[in-house]
Amino acid sequence: MPGASSGGGRVGVLQGTMSYVLQDESGQIATTHSISAGLDYASIGPEHAYLHDSGRAEYTYASDAEALEGFALCAELEGIIPALEASHAIMPALRIARELPQDDVVIVNLSGRGDKDVQLVAELPTE
């Protein structure tokens, strides 16, 4: 589940790949931010763009705060530390699950492990 890049952008070419790209009207690539390095990018993989256009997949997004909330929740409830990239999927998955019948099964694909992110999360200022 890509981050903010899946929420906008138009077709462009970044680093040799045509896909949806965050850019201004003159084609200048937009600056981006994400708490997860893997999502801090102004474009999405072209396969995702294809799946989006063909209607075979729907995309959503999560903020940094939601990703951190999902990160903590997954660690507490499941004993699994997800990568911050994959953490973006958890809160949207919970929102979707609330709309489904009790017996339905929702699969969240945790595409990476969060060992690499523990220090970053630990060093974040606590509210």
């Binding site: 077709v11 462009g12 070419v13 970044l14 790209v21 850019q23 009207e25 003159s26 084609g27 200048q28 690539i29």
Partner: peptide, 11 residues
């Protein structure tokens, strides 16, 4: 030029 500004005009 970077390619995307050219591409944007092309589009």
């Amino acid at each position: 030029s970077y390619f995307n500004p050219l591409f944007a005009i092309w589009r």
